[in-house]
Simulated scan of single mutants.
Amino acid sequence: MTSKTGGSSLERAKCDELSTPESVAIMAAINRLESGIHAKFDAHAAEIRGKISLVREEMHNKFSSLKEDLKSQNEHLTCLETATSEWTTSLHSLKPTAVSLQKEITSLQAKCLDLECLSRRSNLRLVGIPEGLEGPQPTKFIADALVEIFDLPEPPLLARAHRTLASKPAEGSRLRAFVICFHRYDVKEDIWQKASQGGQLKFRDKTVFVFPDFPPEIAKKWAAYYKVKHHLRSMPDVKYSLKGLTGFRITKNGAEHTFDTAAMAFVRQNLLPA
């Protein structure tokens, strides 16, 4: 055991060591270093707290702005949903009216097409007359031309005759047709019957063609029979003719066949050699 007298001696020795100038200087340096560390830590902590506060403020402002935007968007969506609901209701109520109007428009279009066909029923189209031959009196010129083409005893009485309403074609381009309106329907029918017999028509050594004058909608449907007529021209025992506005009639051995679109298939299967 250490005696109390021995312990006191050690303590006094330690105090004497710490009382030396070197020890005092070391302790002072340690204290200064510790104070500097605390100061720097406090400064960095204050800087970090400031930045955190700034970020929090920015986030708060952005979130507030987003809340306002979301609120505005919700209001717009509510308005759109209301408007969509109203439009859907209106569309449902208008659907029967639209269907009725579509049927009426289709009916009116058919009537207009029929009326246009009737207004052209006394017309024929003459194709192949060179440009400029008609001169200043195209109606008289065409009446005389029909005499030459069909070997008529006298010029037919025409209401009018004129080129189709298109710009004059360039040299070598497709010629414009003549639209001929006959004063009498029966005369027009006689001319058409002669033109339909299949012989080649000539005017001043030029090959010409005669067609019915129908609206473009009907003309396109009739053009679909071009190949059929081309094959049937070489069959003397087969007769053919157009029927109505869009039909086609083929007669062979007294049997008559009427088509709308399948005439070519019938010709291939029944009339053309295998």
Rank of each mutant, 00 (worst) to 15 (best):
D151F: 03
E154H: 10
P155N: 03
P155V: 08
P155T: 04
P155I: 01
L157Q: 12
L157T: 15
L157M: 05
L158N: 08
R160D: 10
A161G: 11
A161Q: 02
H162K: 13
H162M: 09
H162W: 01
H162I: 07
L165S: 14
A166S: 12
A166W: 02
A166Q: 14
A166F: 09
S167K: 15
S167Y: 01
P169S: 07
P169C: 06
A170W: 00
G172Y: 01
G172A: 07
R174S: 11
A177P: 01
A177I: 06
F178N: 05
F178S: 04
V179K: 05
C181F: 01
C181T: 12
F182K: 05
F182D: 06
R184T: 09
R184F: 13
R184K: 12
Y185Q: 11
D186C: 03
D186H: 08
D186F: 04
V187A: 11
V187Y: 01
V187P: 00
K188H: 01
K188Q: 15
K188E: 11
E189K: 14
D190F: 04
D190H: 08
D190R: 12
I191W: 00
I191L: 10
W192Q: 12
Q193I: 14
K194S: 13
K194M: 15
K194V: 10
K194D: 09
K194Y: 00
A195I: 07
S196P: 00
S196W: 00
S196A: 14
G198Q: 03
G199D: 10
Q200H: 02
K202G: 00
K202T: 13
K202N: 11
